[in-house]
Amino acid sequence: MEYGRRRPLLRVRGRSIAWLPPLLLLVGIILLDFNTGEQFRIITWIVLVPGIAAAICGVWTTAAYSVLSVVTYVLVDNAWPDQYQAGFGDFLLVALGGALATLASVVRVRQERQVLHIRDIAETTRRTVLRPLPPRWAGLEHAGVYLAADVDARVGGDFYDIQPGPHGTRVLVGDVQGKGLGAVEAAAALLGTFREAGYHEKDLATVAARLETRMLRHRSHTAALGRADGDRFATAVLIGFPEDTVEAIDVANFGHEPPLAVGPRGVRELPSGDGVPLGLGELAGGLPPVRRVPLAADETLLLVTDGVTEARDGPGEFFQLVREVARAVHADPGRADPRRLVRRVRDGVLRHSGGRLEDDTTIFAVRRADTGGGPGAGGEDHEQGRLRS
């Protein structure tokens, strides 16, 4: 077993072949040395073999190639007449090169383990902020995908969640201004408040007020710590699925991208409202109103962050979300299904931007399920509702 748990760089049908390039180089040097005259001795090039192994193989494989290179050098060099031998100085070069290659492999594998550990921490943080949700939860069917602009970070300020409760099911989708751990902290603070207030509070406006207060408290705390990100804010959409009707939803929009209602009859943009982001309510003299808007039972609610609408192609043209979704649904009304809809938007954004995302991107789709599911509905599979990013 190689030193450290790592994913081999070269794989064929699930098996590592990282050992093959150094072996081919070793054989090639031996054959070339035997087939050239005494004026062209290249056996000392065998020092490259452990160097290549150090770049793509594990520590023990690199050490094995280092020893094999030294042994091969001695055997091949002694196969020539005395006047053609490369000499003891080149032997030391090969031996020292192998030792340094093994040391370099140790350093590289340790760094890889550290990076994997950091990525595991980031993944745990992401799963804490964006907790796994059953695909059918509290009478809703949903799907979501999160794409980090930094592919190694895997975590950012975008967030979404569903909270069932005695007063109906609530949904929150948002985007914290800025990046890094500070944005993650703010997102986690807002989600914690949403999960409590969304369950206990009867009035959706009260939930909105609790979110605004939490954002202000979080900003006050970070400012007291002397951090430079004490002025963060967050755009968000707070949605309530009332129990007294299945043909409408309650929406409070905090400066976020307006939701889209996607159904067999096409795509329509819900009112965006005139709200300002969370944390800036005092600038507008109050919170945005809660509006009741129609949403047919066969329509899917599509919510995205600005990573979607601001995605650009090579010439700088923005991704046309409404046009692309309308075209897809017109060709196949079944694409209004949350999972298919999220997958379509995800693939469209990545194709449009060439895979180069300028901002964290969240795509979330939700609709009323065909059959009312309680909080435990669909609980046997907690990962189906979240597509792999």
Rank of each mutant, 00 (worst) to 15 (best):
P259W: 04
T128F: 10
D313A: 06
H142Y: 09
D381E: 11
D158H: 08
V267M: 06
S16G: 09
I118E: 15
E257A: 06
A365Q: 03
D33N: 14
R11Q: 14
V151H: 12
T361W: 02
G334L: 10
P50H: 07
V176K: 05
P166K: 13
L211C: 04
V109I: 13
N35M: 10
E196P: 00
F318V: 03
T62R: 04
R119G: 07
P259C: 08
E196S: 14
L260I: 07
V304L: 07
F194Q: 02
G156A: 11
H117D: 14
A234Y: 00
A148M: 05
H221P: 00
Q111F: 09
G37R: 09
V293Q: 10
G58Q: 02
G374N: 13
W60K: 07
R214C: 11
P21G: 13
Y146K: 01
F241Q: 01
T72P: 01
R170Y: 04
L20Y: 06
A122M: 14
V106T: 11
V276E: 01
V304M: 07
P259R: 08
D158S: 08
I43V: 15
A331L: 11
R386E: 06
P259E: 03
T206M: 10
D161N: 12
D359I: 06
R108F: 07
A197V: 05
F91K: 04
I239W: 00
E247Q: 14
G87Y: 13
L181A: 12
E38S: 15
L96C: 13
G198E: 05
D244L: 05
D359H: 13
G37I: 07
D152Y: 10
V276F: 09
Q114H: 14
G240C: 04
L133N: 04
W60T: 10
R265F: 06
L23S: 11
F159A: 04
I30R: 08
V155W: 03
A79D: 12
D82K: 11
F159D: 01
F241S: 01
A326S: 15
F318D: 08
L23K: 01
F233T: 01
Q39V: 10
D274N: 11
G14A: 06
F233A: 02
I121K: 10
L130H: 05
A183P: 02
V71C: 13
L20S: 10
I121V: 15
F40T: 12
E299Q: 13
P375F: 02
R351T: 04
G97Y: 01
V171H: 01
Y160R: 03
I42G: 07
P288F: 06
